[in-house]
């Protein structure tokens, strides 16, 4: 069975939207962090799909695949930093719910 590019792009689009609305609507800090990762991974799927389907004899389009490795690395760094901040915040405030964080206000 041959899947076309649009199938992959649809999946990427759906995952990106889940991540986007998850960050906006969910209040749990850990879930928000996971949603950020979903958005980055949606980009990865789209990148790999594009570079596979746009490849021709002359141009193998490898830079898309290369980019994915950079994104994975960056995402790992972001999670590491994010988890550290959330853990420290939990130790201080005993909560991971974003709407209970209201020290900073006008």
């Amino acid at each position: 069975m041959n899947m076309d590019l649009n199938a992959y792009l649809t999946v990427a689009g759906i995952i990106f939207s889940i991540g986007f609305f998850g960050v906006l609507l969910r209040r749990n800090a850990l879930v928000m962090l996971m949603c950020l990762e979903l958005m980055l991974n949606a980009s990865n799927i789209a990148l790999v799909a594009y570079s596979r389907y746009n490849a021709t004899e002359q141009n193998q389009m490898m830079d898309g695949n290369t980019f994915v490795f950079f994104i994975i690395t960056v995402a790992a760094a972001e999670v590491a930093v994010g988890l550290a901040i959330i853990v420290q915040l939990f130790r201080k405030t005993r909560t991971v719910m974003a709407d209970e964080l209201n020290t900073l206000r006008d």
Binding site: L40, I85, L89, K92
Partner: peptide, 23 residues
């Protein structure tokens, strides 16, 4: 707590903007 909270908010909003930029 203020500094950590600011860091967390920056993380979420900065991460969101980077993800949009990347897509």
């Amino acid at each position: 707590v203020a500094s950590l909270e600011a860091g967390f908010k920056y993380l979420i909003q900065g991460g969101l903007s980077s993800a949009i930029l990347l897509f």
